[in-house]
Design a protein around this nucleic acid. Structure first.
Length: 265
DNA sequence: CCTATAGCCTGACGGC
DNA sequence: TGCCGTCAGGCTATAG
C-alpha cells in the first residue's frame, strides 16, 4: 500500500493518535523488522518517553523521541499503523506494539516484513545515506530538478518516476496514475520527453499526489477520472471506456490505456 | 558507470 | 478440500 500519499496519511494518523502520549512499554513481536537495533535496545530507548514530532520524506516516516533521536518507519508493501483501545487484540502480523499511558496501543503491522524500523540521530544524514532524492511534494522537487533527473536516464518513464534517487515517494500505483493523467505511455523513454510533456508531467505529478492525500489515499475517494479505482484485470479506462492494458514494465505491473496514452516509445 | 532482474517474506486467489 | 502456480502499492544485491 504505502507510497507517498499513504505514508502522509499514516503520518497524520500518527500525529492525531500517538503524539505526546507517555509510552509505558513497547513489545517487539518480531525483530525481523528492526534494522539497526536489538529488541532490547529498542524497548529501552522508547520506554518512559514520548513522541513529540513527526516528519515524512518520500515513503519514510520519522518520529522524534523526546529523549533525542528519531525512529524511522518504512512500510514496505504491506505496512500500516493501527491505534486501538488496550483490551482489543492487536491485528494479525503486528510486529511492534507501543503501550501508552492512556490505555491505548499503537501497532506497527507488516504482513510481508518488507518494511524496516530503525533509529537515527539525524534524518538528513539518513536520507543522504539512502541516496534519496527530494521528497516529491517538497519545494526542492522543482521543475528544473525533475527535468534534469529525467534527462539523466535512458530508462522508461515509469521506472524513472519510481526511482527514489531522483524523486522520493512515487511507487508503482501512483506512477501509473500520474502517467495516465498526463497521457503519457509508461514505456516512453524518460530522456525523450519533450519540454512540454515534462512540464505537464511535473504539474500532474504534484496534483495527483495532493489529490490522493486529500482523499486519504483511499481509492474510493479518488475523482471519477482517476485510473486507480479501475486498476484491475478487466478494468475500463475512465476517460474513453476502452480496455486497460496490463503489462510488466521493468519488473512491475503497469496498467494504462493504450488509446489515451500514446504509444510513441 | 548504467539499467535490468532475482530475491526477500507471507498470504490471497484462481484453476485443476 | 487440497495442491499448485501466480501475484502483491518496496527495496537491495547482483548480473549483464
Amino acid at each position: 500500500m504505502p507510497e507517498l500519499p499513504d505514508v502522509e496519511v499514516f503520518r497524520q494518523y500518527f500525529e492525531a493518535t500517538s503524539l505526546h502520549q507517555g509510552i509505558e512499554s513497547a513489545q517487539v513481536l518480531n525483530d525481523d523488522v528492526l534494522s539497526n537495533v536489538s529488541a532490547r535496545q529498542f524497548q529501552n530507548r522508547v520506554r518512559n518517553h514520548q513522541f513529540d514530532a513527526s516528519r515524512r520524506h518520500g515513503k519514510y516516516l520519522f518520529v522524534h523521541l523526546n529523549n533525542d533521536g528519531w525512529l524511522v518507519f518504512h512500510f514496505g508493501m504491506t505496512g500500516y499503523f493501527d491505534y486501538f483501545k488496550g483490551k482489543h487484540k492487536a491485528p494479525k502480523h503486528t510486529r511492534l506494539l507501543f503501550q501508552f499511558a492512556n490505555d491505548y496501543q499503537l501497532a506497527y503491522v507488516s504482513q510481508r516484513k518488507l518494511g524496516k524500523v530503525s533509529f537515527v540521530e539525524d534524518p538528513d544524514d539518513f536520507l543522504k545515506d539512502q541516496g534519496l532524492g527530494p521528497d516529491a511534494l517538497s519545494e526542492s522537487a522543482d521543475l528544473t530538478t525533475f527535468s534534469k533527473a529525467l534527462e539523466s536516464t535512458r530508462s522508461a518513464i515509469k521506472p524513472a518516476l519510481m526511482n527514489q534517487g531522483h524523486l522520493a515517494g512515487v511507487g508503482n500505483i501512483y506512477s501509473d496514475e500520474v502517467l495516465f493523467q498526463a497521457k503519457i505511455h509508461p514505456e516512453t523513454k524518460a530522456n525523450r520527453l519533450g519540454d512540454a510533456e515534462v512540464r505537464r508531467l511535473f504539474h500532474t505529478l504534484k496534483e495527483v499526489l495532493k489529490t490522493a492525500i486529500d482523499g486519504k489515499a483511499d481509492p474510493e475517494q479518488m475523482p471519477d477520472s482517476y485510473l486507480l479505482p479501475h486498476r484491475q484485470k478487466g478494468g475500463k479506462c475512465p476517460a474513453c471506456g476502452g480496455n486497460l492494458k496490463r503489462e510488466k514494465i521493468s519488473g512491475r505491473t503497469a496498467y494504462y490505456c493504450p488509446r489515451c496514452q500514446g504509444r510513441d516509445k
